[in-house]
Design a protein around this nucleic acid. Structure first.
Lengths: 151, 151
DNA sequence: CTTTTTGCAAATGATTTGCATTAAC
DNA sequence: GTTAATGCAAATCATTTGCAAAAAG
């Protein structure tokens, strides 16, 4: 008995991605499905290399260029967000709902952050300047709990 | 007759940087002064290469590694903010006061944005998680006025 | 005079590209 | 069958590093 409130099951995630790809006239490949599924399972900010390591057991011949291409595709589909950083590779955030980030300027760590923030006025102001907003993200830089404690 | 409300004059900017450097036991070099001055004069988001081009007339032998090192130093001093981007070099923002950014995901353009936004609650929430906030920036991605009109 | 900063050349690291092969459709 | 996607190798681009020479204090 599957309650209607249940979290999306794995094959369901696959079906959603497949549908989105077909909508765009693009092909449903095992690489795309496995990378997409792995991101959902990892459920944290990961680099392209980390994605590669995570999927290699299930896709022995996978290559880094394919991982990058797929991550870019998933970003276009809106299921992944790329977070560019100084002093390190970009991270990919699999959380699809709007949320914010805490970025440690000492260790580079990026944490999700659910900020109490009303973005309606800001979004309207951006639109008032002719800008067509897509996403609004608050980026808080500082020292994470660990680095603040250390020194 | 210099009104007291006048914008900081160039030599004044130099003196402020020199003082900050001496405070940290670092040396006041012409490269640092000229790069700092150029950023203030450019008054827009620029890449390290663009900074190099801007200062070369005044510093014929300047090198890109020095520009990078100086920009990093100025970031530590809080007079410049680095904005990392996908698909392009980092940009350096010479505006010292808190403000936000509109990032075009079509052409990559980054504009300053004075958002009507109350960050006190968000800052407090970050602190509540043990994070020591330093800066809060809203990043709005979407299409800039030009790209929205075109595409 | 001592130590930091610079410029240069070279290294590094992330990401992208070209192209032949493979797999979707 | 046709066309898009993949894997590989190599290229590219931004940024950093090592080290001898120059400049600051």
């Amino acid at each position: 008995m599957t309650p209607v409130t249940q979290t999306t099951t794995a094959p369901d995630v696959d079906r959603q991605l497949a549908a989105a790809l077909r909508n765009r006239g693009q092909r449903v490949t095992s690489q795309r499905l496995v990378i997409h599924r792995a991101l959902r399972e990892l459920d944290r900010h990961v680099s392209a290399e980390q994605v590669l390591d995570a999927v290699r057991p299930r896709l022995p011949g996978i290559s880094l260029p394919t991982v990058y291409a797929t991550l870019e595709l998933l970003e276009e589909l809106g299921t992944v967000r790329r977070v560019s950083r100084a002093h390190g590779p970009a991270l990919f955030d699999p959380r699809p709902d709007p949320h914010h980030h805490l970025v440690c300027r000492v260790c580079g760590r990026v944490q999700d952050f659910d900020a109490p923030l009303d973005l309606d006025a800001a979004t309207a102001a951006a639109a008032g300047q002719g800008f067509a907003p897509d996403r609004c993200e608050l980026v808080v830089s500082g020292r994470c709990a660990d680095c603040a404690a250390a020194g």
